[in-house]
Write a protein that binds this DNA or RNA. Structure first.
Lengths: 268, 268
DNA sequence: ACCTGAACACCGTTCAAGT
DNA sequence: ACCTGAACACCGTTCAAGT
């Protein structure tokens, strides 16, 4: 369980890799209605994150919500980051793990559903995309979902060596897209401006700079439609890989596409 | 220039949309060797971010590096976030804008180069992916690069309505991938553990949970190769779109793929 | 075993004051 | 025009002490 880093003051890489003293895993058997435990604290953290956002989430506010002193929480959790990891995996429990062996299941449609489900989650809990860029996201719910999607992907006929690349294309894209969308929403709402107004201002500002007049009219908000188009793009790319034609075929081909002429040593 | 939000205490959506009083844009004409200005402050910020990371970057430390009081910086910059936006666009100036009209240029190869260049940038300045999820990234360098890549994309023959979806697929993917990679690197190095050790620990931990034994052996670090595979996947998807076959064709087709059976109203 | 209070070493930012 | 010092309202976290 340990990641071998538990010397003196070293940090842990993830809550999910902690050596938790048995003593603290809840002394008496079942749930008591009185007193705190990790589940109650995590649930309160999710609630606070949902209502206040990541920036205003603090241990002191959380403790206040729980009607307890700020430092009580530290009995159950080593530090704030651990709590954020717990909260992240808790909401990821909302994801339905796709069943690759389901009757008549189409892998394309299952991938679409998984991608939209993940995006829906990141929209319902806007703070989550902020934590995804900081933590490992290897909690039980996240891993279950990821491994489930991986099994679906393998049913497409994609060679196993390419499965993780395709998974990366799918998940990194959904995550990146959600993160960008979220930062637009947050910034605009903090400024009390509609996303449309903000974009109009941006187009005007760019139009004033001579170097961008070519193309500035193409600037507009992250459109609803773009997500679908981009997703189909990724899925079509996976499909191309299954046909062995153009597509994600990394090695052993006449014209190896990876890496094609390194532009700079450190970039590839 | 203004985004219409400059009432009383409202925040701005971006530094790039500020109304900057002419008085503060540098009084006398050219550069002086003495005294501060935005360029010097931004350069110092990039230096500090590169050496210390986003978490340890503070206005007080920056001011100390500049040999000045913490509050002097606020004469040139409204708040810390503005400075981070300036630093982000400053490093994005390292990106070479592709020339869509170049002789004998292949759009696929140009897209590959752009993607690798962006990833290289995010690796040289690991803090940058952390800011990309928080700010609008609409500075002059970022916009120049993005519009340049967009022109390359259009030369593929992809219909204009799909260009932004394809751009989103490409950029969101590179950004998401870099962010995940960065969080692994940072977490492992903070714990003083190699990425490999960390993954071994994770696999062991997952193996101990009965629900993951199926597939746990598939867990391994974000591989170097995955990025290339995923990138080819996106490019193949774009190419599929240009052939009008399967691929990112959003509307007006026999079997509309977007949206296919909404799983839940809020998710699509 | 669980919770508290006081304290430490920081933050970003405001504001009145200096030159 | 530019820079400072003191202050405000917070942080995460440690630690000794309570029950």
């Amino acid at each position: 369980m340990s990641d071998g880093s538990r010397t003196s003051r070293m940090r842990r890489t993830s809550v999910w890799l902690e050596d938790r003293p048995e003593a603290r895993r809840k002394a008496s058997g079942a749930s008591q209605t009185e007193g705190l435990d990790r589940e109650k604290i995590t649930a309160a953290a999710v609630r606070l994150l949902d209502t206040e956002g990541l920036a205003r989430f603090s241990m002191r506010r959380l403790a206040a919500d729980l009607g307890v002193t700020a430092m009580s929480v530290y009995w159950y959790v080593d530090r704030k980051d651990d709590l954020l990891e717990l909260a992240l995996d808790a909401v990821e429990g909302e994801l339905e793990v796709p069943d690759a062996e389901a009757e008549g299941a189409d892998w394309r449609e299952q991938l679409r559903q998984a991608a939209f489900a993940l995006r829906g989650l990141l929209r319902r809990h806007p703070w989550a995309s902020g934590t995804l860029g900081s933590f490992l996201n290897v909690g039980p719910s996240a891993m279950g979902f990821q491994l489930g999607v991986r099994r679906v992907l393998l049913r497409s006929g994609l060679p196993e060596q390419q499965a993780d690349g395709a998974l990366a294309a799918l998940f990194s894209f959904v995550y990146g897209h959600a993160a960008v969308e979220e930062s637009w929403n947050r910034r605009c709402s903090e400024a009390g401006v509609s996303s449309q107004d903000c974009f109009d201002a941006l187009r005007t500002a760019l139009g004033a700079r001579p170097e961008y007049t070519a193309g500035a009219e193409a600037v507009y908000p992250v459109a609803e439609r773009d997500f679908g188009v981009a997703l189909e793009c990724v899925i079509a790319g996976i499909e191309a890989g299954t046909r062995g034609g153009r597509g994600p075929a990394p090695q052993g081909r006449a014209t190896p596409v990876i890496p094609p002429q390194p532009p700079s040593p450190e970039d590839r």
